[in-house]
Design a protein around this nucleic acid. Structure first.
Lengths: 199, 199, 199, 199
DNA sequence: TATGAATGAGCTTTCATTCAT
DNA sequence: AATGAATGAAAGCTCATTCAT
């Protein structure tokens, strides 16, 4: 029943540490210490530090993509976007370390080990959003001069930036602002989508 | 005149490598090899790896902040925002490695050595934009329900995300998109600012 | 009947690997993988890596010595030597790995675990040959100035060298010779024995 | 003057330990401890354990081959062979560890790291001897049915075996013989060459 | 008999840093 | 201002071995 206890413990510790410190600043010793297990267990369950990392990324990305895919693409675009971003926020709230790791991975080209599937995973969420917008464009609901892929990535960037700042603010060092940046961010998205549609 | 040749060589190599690989994955050996100098020179000119890094960050941030500060705050808000973002783009175009390093530094809490001034530097650009918006708000030019700090950071996030993708696309591995994400991004900012103002 | 299947599988794999790679370069994992069993089985049947090794050596040496002992010591010296060397060759042909392991063991002082009986086992074959020559010497059949022990070991060395080269040639990497070195080796023995006897 | 002191110290220690214990049983720690230097020095001067090993082998083989090459090939065959074997013995006497390492390397196919030049080096000494015999054969001085390459390797094998036993006898554990095996060995070579020539 | 899971000790290697010159 | 040589500390990883079942 508590079968994969050790594996799970390593996995969680790894995510948290990789997210905070990055790949190279995180040592296997750090991970096992946090997990309360011995070093060889990492190699028993994951093969190597690099495989541990890619396993983390794949599983996390897999979960995140699954969550995004649950959003109904048949919804009106406005609702779809809202739900999509709600999912994004929920991810940051429920497992901030995982979300942080993922955005760091996106932002840091050579800082993490690359693996073949990475590009596809990285691309997926923005691509999903982009496709839905493209369909709406075909139906004439959206302004012709909007590039849907760029729009999607911009939203993702805004989300990542504001959420990361919140994470730093709460878990690492107080930043000099009072209201929640998260809330305000919602406004930007509102503003942005307002312009997205034809009048 | 070619006095500080060595120092400069180290400095430039360091920026490029730190930007691409991050702090820990970059070794002193890498840096001096790229710079064509010997290891002790790093210690002679910069004291330590950490000081080399913070020196890089400070000088880069200093330059970036200077650039942003040259934008005339007395311009109408719309023009101010446009110019501000143009400066941002120019930075990414003219020294992409520097820009990348800075955004990585923002996004990765514990991945780089922290130093006291870091928070202030980090905060500065968004803060400048935020202050200008706040003034416009006071003058009644901007919607009351907009949080200017969040708005600013969101724009920065969108900029960082799209520019980083362009960097990856061009320098590291082709990504599957045809039109320039940068161009399209301009649209998002247009859309966003459209909603910013009172009708 | 297939009771000691596992034990036998381990034993055979161990011999082959020890022979090729030596004691330290051979891991328990290698052995069990080749044998298709699990690691603890080694400890169940043999107690430890070292005991596994000494068991291998003892059993192999035992068999080899038995073979040599079957040669009839009452034969005329010339015939005895011929038969003796034929046995040696047969061993190399029928179980080259075993023969190789044994010669490596002889040649590498501290490379393998030593055990009390080792010296005796090592000494045995050359000693047997030596004794028979000594008797012939007493009977006046052999030149007085020949040291029978040295003669025996020299023959063994020549045999080992040529056979090992054949092994490398066939199983590891082609060596630059066409005719079989084994055949020619027979010639040396002929020549040697020619000089051994009184005219 | 004592410039490459450290390098030399490492080199000598490495030879001795590799010769006695083989490649895998010898640790870098053993080597540096014996040499009285620190671990990174091995990497500074030799790059890696494997390169240290191949460097040892190459330098030793180089020296040995040079020694053999100094024997005048224009000498009458009998004298050439005598001088050649004298050189071989001298090597064993003057640097027994080096000689031992070399013969172990020859005898143990996969026990040591292989490197491209190995085969050539390995082959050289016997080849030299072989060529000289071949020429004598052409001149009709030597029996037609003798394969010169096999003859050469057999002599080398006899030399290696007897010399190795002497090494074990003197440096590791007394073996049960009184007279020097080396001396007797000379006899075998006499006997062998006796048969080599046409009457 | 047999195994999956676990471990302490030790391996090769590299790092940031400094010393003597 | 510059360097070759040196080092303590720690990295990732593997090994022979054992435990609980």
């Amino acid at each position: 029943m508590r079968k994969d206890n050790v594996r799970e413990e390593i996995f969680q510790s790894a995510i948290e540490l990789f997210a905070r410190r990055g790949y190279f600043a995180t040592t296997i010793r750090d991970i096992v210490e946090k997990a309360g297990v011995t070093q060889p267990m990492v190699y028993y369950y994951f093969g190597s530090k690099e495989e541990l990392f890619t396993t983390c990324i794949k599983e996390l990305f897999g979960g995140i993509i699954d969550s995004y895919e649950e959003v109904d693409r048949e919804l009106p675009l406005k609702d779809y976007l809202k739900k999509f971003l709600d999912v994004g926020k929920k991810i940051y709230v429920e497992s901030p370390e995982a979300a942080l790791l993922v955005s760091n991975f996106v932002f840091s080209p050579d800082e993490y080990p690359r693996f073949p599937e990475a590009k596809k995973l990285l691309w997926k969420p923005a691509n999903m959003m982009s496709e839905v917008i493209a369909r709406a464009k075909k139906k004439g609901e959206v302004r012709k001069d909007v590039n849907e892929l760029s729009f999607s990535f911009s939203l993702m960037g805004a989300l990542a930036m504001t959420k990361t700042l919140n994470f730093i603010h709460e878990k690492i060092e107080k930043l000099p602002y009072d209201k929640d940046i998260d809330f305000a961010n919602k406004q930007l998205l509102d503003l942005a989508t307002k312009g997205l549609f034809k009048k």
